[in-house]
C-alpha cells in the first residue's frame, strides 16, 4: 500500500548546518495493517510519517501510495491523492469555529460532496467514534479524548485507504489513550483502513500494531513483528524501548 523508496530528508538547522531527519530509508507497508513508527524524540519518526502524504517533500527518493507516485504529481493531483489519505494529529488541529459535525464535513466539502451525502457520512462517522450526541458542539466544549475522536472521524470521513496518525495519544491520559487506540483498531478491522501510527511508547505498538519500524537517527534500525501483544525485538534499541514501556 505504501512504499517509501530511498527517502532522504534534511533540514537546515537554525544555527546553520544541516540535520539529517531521514537518511536513505526504504519501507513497505502492507494494505490493511496497523504499522507503527517508533523511536525516541528526534529519531525522525514524525518526519517519516509526514513524508507519506508529502507534508514534507523528500530531498530524494519516491513515495508510492496505492500504486501512485506522489513525488511525481503536480499540485492538483497531489491534493486529490491526499483526499484519500486521512491524518490524525497529536494536537487534534480541529477548527475552533466549526462544530464537531462541520469539522468532520470539512474534507468532504473539499472533495466536492453534495450536502445530503455529507450529512449522511458525517452521521455515520460520528457513530463510529461514538460522538453522535456531540454533533453540534464546538471543539472547545469537548475533552481531549473527544477532540481526538473528532479528529479520527474527520480522517475517516472521505473513506480513505490510509490513515496517518502522528502521536495521536501523546496529549492524552492513559485511560483515554486506550480508548483512542481501541477506536483506531476498530476502524482498521471494520473498514480495512491501513493505519500508520507514530509513537514513542512501546505500549502503543503492543496494543494495536501488527508491525513497527524502530527508528534511530533517521534510519530504520529494525522492523519488529507484534503477535499477541508480544514484540519480537532483536536490536538493542528496540529492547530499550520495550524496557522503557
Amino acid at each position: 500500500m505504501i512504499h517509501l523508496q530511498n527517502i532522504r530528508k534534511r533540514f537546515r538547522r537554525p544555527g546553520g548546518g544541516w540535520f539529517d531527519a531521514v537518511q536513505d530509508t526504504s519501507l513497505a507497508i502492507t494494505a490493511g495493517e496497523v504499522f507503527g513508527l517508533i523511536g525516541f524524540s528526534g529519531a525522525g519518526k514524525s518526519t517519516l510519517l509526514r513524508l507519506i502524504n508529502l507534508l514534507e517533500r523528500p530531498d530524494s527518493g519516491a513515495v508510492i501510495v496505492d500504486g501512485q507516485d506522489l513525488t511525481a504529481m503536480d499540485a492538483p493531483a497531489l491534493r486529490r491523492a491526499r483526499q484519500h489519505l486521512g491524518m490524525v494529529f497529536q494536537q487534534f488541529n480541529l477548527m475552533a469555529n466549526r462544530t464537531v459535525a462541520d469539522n468532520i464535513a470539512f474534507p468532504l466539502e473539499i472533495a466536492g460532496w453534495s450536502k445530503a451525502d455529507i450529512a449522511q457520512r458525517v452521521a455515520e462517522c460520528l457513530e463510529v467514534v461514538g460522538l453522535s450526541d456531540r454533533a453540534q458542539h464546538y471543539p472547545a466544549q469537548l475533552s481531549g479524548g473527544q477532540k481526538q475522536r473528532v479528529g479520527i472521524a474527520r480522517a475517516l470521513a472521505p473513506r480513505p485507504k490510509v490513515i496517518l496518525a502522528d502521536e495521536p495519544t501523546s496529549a492524552l491520559d492513559p485511560k483515554t489513550t486506550q480508548s483512542i487506540l481501541d477506536c483506531l483498531r476498530d476502524i482498521n478491522q471494520r473498514f480495512g483502513v491501513t493505519v500508520v501510527i507514530v509513537t514513542h511508547e512501546m505500549h502503543v505498538v503492543r496494543s494495536i500494531c501488527h508491525r513497527a519500524a524502530v527508528l534511530d537517527a533517521g534510519q530504520v534500525v529494525e522492523v519488529v513483528e507484534v503477535s499477541d501483544g508480544k514484540v519480537d525485538a532483536r536490536s538493542d534499541l528496540a529492547r530499550s524501548l520495550l524496557e522503557a514501556a
Binding site: L55, L78, R79
Partner: peptide, 24 residues
C-alpha cells in the same frame, strides 16, 4: 497545525484561505 491539517486533507489554497483562515 490547523492550516496543516487542511493541507493534509487536500484543500486548495483558496479553500484554505476562505474556509480555514478567514473562518478561524
Amino acid at each position: 497545525g490547523v492550516v496543516e491539517a487542511a493541507e493534509a486533507m487536500g484543500a486548495s489554497p483558496l479553500q484554505i484561505i476562505i474556509k480555514v483562515l478567514l473562518n478561524e
